[in-house]
Computed example of a mutant assay.
Amino acid sequence: MTATADLAIRMARAAFNRALAEGDLSAIGPLLTMNVVMMTGTDSGIIAGRKAQLLAWKREFAAKERMVYTRTPDSIISSPVEPIAMEHGHWTGMVGGTTVASGQYSAKWRNVGGDWLIEAEIYLTLA
């Protein structure tokens, strides 16, 4: 993996985390491919497409006791033959500063027009 790709993905992940913390839908959309897929950690629900994911985050941001998720990359591996990369890491969900859920995740990224975008994510709830 080039240092540039690793840094770009880590910066995009940090931007996504900031958007989640701030409840900023307009910052999340540009980080997702149109056909992004997310499989949630606890119920294995599938959220397919950028529009569906933004609607899910909108509902999440409106919750009275909103959970704030943070994803922290442990490793990022890029393909030497395609403009794709895989991120592996751990996540936490906090309500009012207290961790109430956590686990592991993997995310597939795709370089589109020079930008690294999330194409797929899968979460595993461990606590």
Rank of each mutant, 00 (worst) to 15 (best):
V68S: 06
Y69H: 04
R71E: 11
R71V: 05
R71T: 06
P73G: 01
P73V: 00
S75T: 15
I76G: 08
I76H: 04
I76Q: 04
I77W: 02
I77V: 14
S78W: 03
S79N: 15
P80Q: 09
V81M: 07
P83L: 03
P83G: 07
P83K: 07
I84G: 02
I84W: 08
A85W: 07
E87G: 12
H88W: 06
H88Y: 11
H90C: 05
G93L: 03
M94R: 14
V95T: 14
G97H: 06
G97P: 09
T99L: 09
V100D: 01
G103S: 12
G103R: 04
Y105W: 11
Y105Q: 06
Y105A: 10
S106I: 12
A107F: 02
K108Y: 00
W109K: 01
R110P: 00
R110T: 12
N111K: 09
V112H: 06
V112K: 08
G113E: 11
G114L: 10
D115Y: 07
W116E: 05
W116V: 03
W116G: 04
L117Y: 03
L117P: 02
I118T: 03
A120M: 13
E121G: 08
I122V: 15
Y123Q: 10
Y123T: 09
Y123P: 00
Y123H: 12
Y123A: 12
Y123I: 14
L124M: 13
